[in-house]
Amino acid sequence: MASENYASNGVATAPLTSVNQALNFGRDYSRLKNYYETWSADYDNDVSEENYCGPSMLADLFDSLHRAPRERQSLRIMDACCGTGLVGKELMLRGFAPVDGCDLSPAMTHLAHKTQAYARLYGGVDLTEHNPLIADNQYDATFCCGAFIQGHLPIEAIHELMRITTQGGVILFSTRCSFYQDEHFDKFLDKLTASAQLCALPSFMNAAYLNDVQAHYLAFAVNK
């Protein structure tokens, strides 16, 4: 897998912040949804204070794959786990047309709507399940930023991202380096590439994410 390494700070003991509290729900999605419903109003400010750069990094990665400006307005894009719309805003700044988005928390999608970066938004979407609201083979690119972390999406949710992406389309997602290692993400992705379901594209590895936290930003072409 091609990669680009970004310099970042070393790992430090994590303080008890809103971001870190969100890691402690053990994939109890009812409790996690309630947490984000309450947190939504303060989310942007809280992650900004921790220098969260995941959305801009993932948008930069996609930007490097689509250099022709004329293509950008015609691409169909889904921002899965869109939150308050940080990825959508980054894509809009880079000249992409309004995208679709979905999130577990309706309160978060309500805030995403205010960014004007989204054409359609779906609240209450659990990506660990097949969602009939989102059709198969619909998107040229599917993003998932900040959700492959402790207590949130399991690695198997990659299959739902693949389902809604077109043949030859792209999935792009971030994962904290620690989560990638603990969940054996490399072995899971190796199986998908060995079976030709995915084809690895250039990625950003060991890159900045939050204060003292690194992430991998991965891109794959989807084969069906």
Rank of each mutant, 00 (worst) to 15 (best):
D100N: 10
G85P: 10
T128C: 13
F185D: 00
T142M: 11
L121T: 11
G85D: 08
F62N: 05
C102D: 14
E90G: 03
M92C: 10
D46M: 04
T165Q: 03
F188A: 12
V87W: 05
L133Y: 09
M162K: 09
A41E: 13
V11E: 06
R27A: 06
E50Q: 13
H159Y: 11
F96S: 03
D79S: 06
E4Q: 14
A219W: 02
G123S: 03
P69V: 06
A117H: 08
M108T: 00
Y43C: 14
A107Y: 14
Q167D: 15
G146L: 02
T17Q: 04
D103N: 05
R120N: 15
D44P: 10
E160H: 07
F62Y: 15
E129L: 12
R94V: 12
G85A: 04
Y217E: 08
Y122K: 02
D46F: 08
S3H: 11
G26S: 10
Y36M: 10
Y180V: 00
A14L: 15
K187L: 12
A207E: 11
T175A: 12
H184N: 15
V125K: 00
D190P: 02
A59Q: 02
G101W: 03
F188H: 13
F173V: 02
D140A: 06
N131Q: 05
D126V: 02
M57W: 03
L172E: 00
R176S: 14
L16M: 09
F220T: 00
R72N: 09
F62C: 08
H159E: 11
Q73E: 13
A2F: 08
L23Y: 15
H66A: 06
Q214H: 12
Q21F: 11
S48K: 12
T175V: 06
N34Q: 11
H152I: 01
Q167A: 12
Y6E: 14
L201F: 07
E4I: 13
L192D: 00
D100P: 10
N137V: 13
G54Y: 02
T17N: 05
A219Y: 02
G54V: 04
A68Q: 07
A207Y: 10
G54F: 03
Y29S: 09
G83K: 05
R72A: 05
G83I: 11
F173Q: 01
Q181H: 11
V11H: 08
D186G: 04
Y217Q: 06
M57K: 09
